[in-house]
């Protein structure tokens, strides 16, 4: 079985987000780049399937300066990696690159994160599925593979649904896909071997972006907090009721 894991390289979760002075882009100075945390669940699931099913795991990223993050993914145990040499412009052009590689190499399963925590698209996985003409399961919190099909548990509002889909399929995971304690953190040996694992750089196929970012805005700060004495909760209730008008 061949698994393709799509990873996006994003600012570390502790990063303060600032924009360039013309507001046209993220100010990348001082930012540490990490594997999108939701993709870590997908990647760890793939490595579990590598052990249990003898699957081969290929990592893919569309990006120009993402090699360090791809090496981290290889250090968790992935077999090899592909980097499409293109600075992602929008979800559609990114999805097209991934779909092109998936088609060329033929995969049984494409695993993604549900959403990247930088641009919050939540769009690439579904687009890849449609471009490949295969089923798509979003928000997966559980996954098992048996002969030619996947049994996935997906989160729905107020519950869970267990579904079976034919392979090949695209599955976008989130927290719960593997337990937090089973998220693989690379060890020294993994990091050493990752250095010599194959990382194939491919040039992008034709890609038209359909959406562009015109400008970015920071979040305006909140007004000064009003402190209420713990002995005077009537005051808190009054403020919520009469000032904020939320209860």
């Amino acid at each position: 079985m061949k698994i393709l894991v799509c990873i996006s390289s994003v600012p570390d979760t502790t990063s303060k987000i600032n924009f360039t002075s013309d507001k046209a882009a993220l100010d990348k100075s001082g930012i540490q780049w990490v594997i999108n945390p939701l993709d870590e669940f997908a990647l760890s699931k793939a490595i579990q399937l590598q052990a249990s099913q003898g699957a081969t795991v290929t990592v893919i990223n569309v990006g120009t300066d993402s090699e360090p993050v791809i090496r981290k993914a290889l250090a968790t145990g992935a077999n090899d990696a592909v980097r499409v040499n293109l600075d992602p412009k929008d979800s559609f052009s990114t999805a097209k690159q991934i779909a092109a590689v998936a088609k060329e190499h033929g995969f049984d399963l494409v695993l993604c994160g549900k959403e990247s925590i930088d641009y919050n698209g939540g769009a690439v996985p579904g687009m890849v599925a449609q471009l490949l003409g295969v089923p798509f399961v979003n928000a997966a919190v559980g996954l098992d593979i048996t002969e030619g099909s996947a049994t996935a548990v997906r989160e729905i509002e107020g519950g869970k649904e267990t579904i079976s889909v034919q392979l090949p399929a695209v599955i976008a995971g989130q927290k719960g896909l593997v337990d937090e304690k089973d998220v693989i953190i690379p060890n020294i040996r993994g990091i050493m071997t990752a250095r010599s694992k194959p990382l194939n750089v491919v040039e992008p196929s034709e890609a038209e972006a359909k959406v562009s970012a015109v400008s970015f805005e920071s979040v305006p700060p909140r007004a000064q907090v009003k402190m209420v004495d713990a002995q005077n909760l009537d005051e808190l209730v009054r403020l919520l009721n009469q000032e904020a008008k939320v209860i």
């Binding site: 919050n120 939540g122 769009a123 579904g126 687009m127 471009l131």
Partner: peptide, 24 residues
């Protein structure tokens, strides 16, 4: 809407019918 189900349908719908997609 950007619910779990609708946000799963929207990207597939957009690609299939040639729409740009702006989420969230």
């Amino acid at each position: 809407p950007h619910t779990t189900d609708a946000s799963s349908i929207a990207p597939m719908f957009a690609v299939e019918n040639g729409y740009a997609l702006i989420t969230n």
